[in-house]
Design a protein around this nucleic acid. Structure first.
Length: 449
RNA sequence: GGAGAGGUGGCCGAGUGGUCGAAGGCACUCCCCUGCUAAGGGAGCAUCCGGGCAUAAACCUGGAUCGAGGGUUCGAAUCCCUCCUUCUCCGCCA
């Protein structure tokens, strides 16, 4: 969430910066709501002050045994007016909040301005493309060739966009996750974290998935069955205010970013504990709404995939240094695996909703003859922290919003794809990168069956 | 799932309708005294949001917040309802 002070003080500048990411801010609406808010809030607070003063008087008078009927008469008709003002105020505040919640973050000034993916800026290339003196296969035929990659059965069990791994491939998948976790905990100073995969709406709101991107999530109803509008109205007409609590939803996490970052929601972290660095290996669930027809072959785009996620909560002054550091941590994995990749700085039109600055790491996939995203590392500055009220106590002892960052280190499924394609041999077997062999019981190659 | 007890500031904890945003303690900050591994005295010390204010800080002033939401009342931390959540015991369970 953006700082509302920012919008109040310099609405035009905010609108201009949001425009660079293709977002049109309805400034007229904001100004109207803000003006309404101001008058109504001032009036409401005046009425409240009046009521509070009178009530205090009554208490005071009563304690001295004086007659209070005169004061009581005075406040008698204040009630309705106040109630009306309060209702109006909460209505305007809710509207403002709704407007604010769907505003994306401001791109950092260092972010290149651009409209789409095509305007992203390549930062560096690391390693080089492997050369093959035979016709390369893609990961699907390689996986089926060495045995253990089975989309047909996955489709039977669940449907499209799921995969099933068995045997050596399943172990390689596990080996990758273990290797990544070990590297980040042993060498990069992250604390390993095991987190819930089902989270509540407040957590999704905190990191920015809700309210705007509900259709991208898997929602799991829990508790009482969902009521229809008529039933809801009936329940509410009985004066029950608890309707909300009787039926709720869980959401399957689309990334470990959600549960891990929300660890600090509504917390005030001691200064000396910063930076907080967590790593978690979790499955991720995405509905992939709107991506029908894209990447339908293979493991590139799935409803369920594993990812090792790096999350940091840092002092605002160090967040951009932390982003570079975190990006380096993700790159380390690719380097150790001997995979060729490039780092891309996303342009203003391509960065995610909550992000201020994002680097993507794209791994080389020979069969597709292209680079594919395998990690995304972002600094959210205070955007998520403001939504979550995640703070630290600064040197002056005052609570201040943290900066949050995260990045994939790495997407496990796509790393598996990259290894299959980059380490393939002429005979259809796949070499296992050396760093993974200890995790594979010493196995050096996945042989074609 | 059943029974019971709780949820109050950074932490502990008092508070059953009225000068309560909240005693006391711990921690922290500043000052004084004393002097050397620590003691005494004093002061300050929740958060968020408005208005004064076009702007940073400061200041003045108002409002909201005692798990959440709703209700009763001139007035709610306190009474009522619902929900969430923690703990203890029992049951069930990987």
């Amino acid at each position: 969430m953006l700082d509302i002070q920012n919008l109040r003080n310099d609405l035009a500048a905010v609108a201009t910066r949001l425009a660079t990411r293709g977002f049109v801010l309805d400034t007229a609406k904001f100004e109207r709501l803000e003006a309404e808010r101001k008058t109504i809030q001032v009036r409401t607070q005046e009425l409240q002050a009046k009521r509070n003063a009178s009530s205090k008087q009554i208490g005071f008078a009563k304690s001295k045994g004086e007659d209070v009927t005169a004061i009581l008469a005075e406040v008698a008709n204040l009630g309705d007016e106040l109630k009306q003002a309060e209702t109006q105020l909460s209505g305007v505040l809710a509207e403002l909040q709704a407007l604010l919640e769907v505003l994306p973050n401001l791109p950092h000034e260092s972010v290149p301005v651009g409209a789409s993916e095509a305007d992203n800026v390549e930062v560096r290339k690391v390693g080089s493309k492997p050369s093959f003196d035979f016709a390369v296969q893609d990961h699907v035929s390689l996986g089926e060739g060495v045995g253990g990659l089975d989309f047909e059965t996955a489709t039977k069990i669940s449907g499209a966009r799921f995969s099933l791994l068995t045997g050596g491939l399943a172990r390689l998948h596990r080996a990758l996750a273990q290797f990544m976790l070990d590297t980040h905990t042993d060498q990069h100073g992250y604390t390993e974290t095991y987190v819930p995969y089902l989270v509540n709406a407040a957590s999704m709101r905190g990191t920015g998935q809700l309210p705007k991107f509900e259709e991208d999530l898997f929602k799991v109803p829990f508790g009482l069955p969902e009521q229809n509008a008529v039933e809801v109205a009936k329940i509410q007409s009985t004066g029950a205010s608890s309707f909300e609590g009787q039926q709720k939803n869980f959401y399957l996490i689309p990334t470990a970013e959600v549960p891990v970052t929300n660890m600090v929601r509504d917390e005030i972290v001691a200064l000396e504990k910063l930076p907080l660095k967590f790593v978690a290996h979790t499955p991720c669930f995405r509905s992939e709404a709107g991506s029908a027809g894209r990447d339908t072959r293979g493991m590139i785009r799935q409803h369920q995939f594993d990812k090792v996620e790096l999350v940091q909560m840092v002092h605002p002054e160090t967040s951009f240094a932390a982003l570079e550091e975190l990006l380096g941590h993700a790159e380390t994995i690719l380097k150790k695996l001997g995979l060729h990749y490039r780092v891309v700085k996303l342009c203003s039109g391509d960065i995610g909703f909550s992000s201020s600055t994002t680097y993507d790491i794209e791994v080389w996939l020979p069969a597709q003859d292209t680079y594919r995203e395998i990690s995304s590392c972002s600094n959210f500055e205070a955007f998520q922290a403001r939504r979550m009220q995640a703070r630290f106590r600064n040197a002056q002892g005052k609570p201040e919003l943290l900066h949050t960052l995260n990045g994939s280190g790495l997407a496990v499924g796509r790393t598996l794809v990259a290894i299959l394609e980059n380490y393939q041999q002429a005979d259809g077997s796949v070499l296992i990168p050396e760093v993974l062999r200890p995790y594979m019981g010493g196995l050096e190659v996945l042989r074609k069956i």
